[in-house]
Design a protein around this nucleic acid. Structure first.
Lengths: 183, 183
DNA sequence: GCTATCCTATGACGAGCGTTATAGCCAGAG
DNA sequence: CTCTGGCTATAACGCTCGTCATAGGATAGC
């Protein structure tokens, strides 16, 4: 279905250039669909498209996380970082996280920003639940989970700026040690 | 001098809206200077202005960090997080870090991106040096310092999306405990 | 008072943006 | 075969963007 291609294409462009630099015309071209179709599928315009793109990215990560966390928090954490590592390296340091990109632009639609907030809450919530199940106190589990998400997002951006995967790998190693010591 | 006002104003707008949504016209208006002056002071156009804005922000943080790190890594870390906390809360969750904003937009000029990379390297380098002086092994010091910078940047973005200061405070608490345990 | 230098003021350029409108196509139901 | 409804195609709207050019004004040194 071409509607889905538009959403995933939009997510990919937001990941790279940010929301403001992602134009509907280019998303349509990139998806091989005419501009008119975009407004047919997304009558809410750019707001709606951006919101759905963020939600799609959030869901994708959420599914990976849910699957890997069944083997414990440490495995989930590894998968989380491996996922970002692949995105950064496969794109030659040109792609990052669309959720972060939306969070950083005030101009953004309120709905897309809310979707971004939901993504952060979902991911850190999944991690926190897993930590709690493995004996970490509730509040501590939440703090650690937020640390993981924040550090991963920040490290991805650092890697892009520095054109080096080193920050992400270092951060992953530090957090792996920290999590494994607590569980 | 009005040149400086243009740079700081640009940094403030990039902090809030990102680089792409920051137009030279609005920067000039915000600084109370005519549009023509912008190209007089910055013949390199938007690239040059963005680069100087990033450098200005980087220097500002670097100075605070240098001053506080003299009292030890833990004090530096506290000041680092306090600085971001103030920016986020004073702006009612609308402002973040211009360095991160530039790092997330591929469209960005290569020079501004290089300035962003320099900022990350400077900040984490300062922290790493301080940790090393207080007995942390060289490589470990670097990892920890990168973790701190990445987590702070990511946490600021999370706070903006969620309109809550909680992630930043939780991350600061976790990292303070981690750093104090190692020094 | 005169002139050279820095800054201002104003407007124009081509391009791209989000969005809307309208007319045409084309499959599948009756 | 016809008709209907989902999708395409195309063009236009008002707007803002980055950039450049050119003319005007002030101010400092002589």
């Amino acid at each position: 279905m071409s509607r889905e291609q538009i959403v995933t294409g939009a997510a990919d462009m937001i990941r790279r250039r940010g929301l403001n630099a992602t134009s509907i015309r280019e998303v349509a071209k990139h998806a091989g669909t005419p501009l008119g179709s975009t407004y047919h599928y997304f009558p809410g315009g750019k707001n709606q498209l951006a919101t759905e793109a963020v939600q799609w990215a959030a869901d994708t990560v959420q599914k990976v996380l849910a699957a890997k966390l069944r083997k414990g928090p440490a495995e989930g954490l590894k998968a989380f970082f491996a996922l970002w590592r692949q995105i950064v390296t496969d794109s030659d340091f040109q792609a990052g996280c669309p959720v972060l990109a939306v969070s950083v632009e005030e101009t953004t639609s309120a709905e897309a920003l809310a979707a971004a907030a939901g993504a952060f809450r979902t991911w850190s919530g999944q991690l926190a639940d897993s930590l709690e199940e493995h004996g970490v106190a509730k509040h501590r589990a939440q703090s650690l989970a937020q640390l993981v998400v924040a550090a991963a997002e920040g490290a991805v951006a650092m890697c892009r700026a520095q054109r080096s995967i080193e920050p992400l790998d270092n951060v992953a190693a530090e957090l792996t040690a920290l999590i494994e010591a607590r569980t």
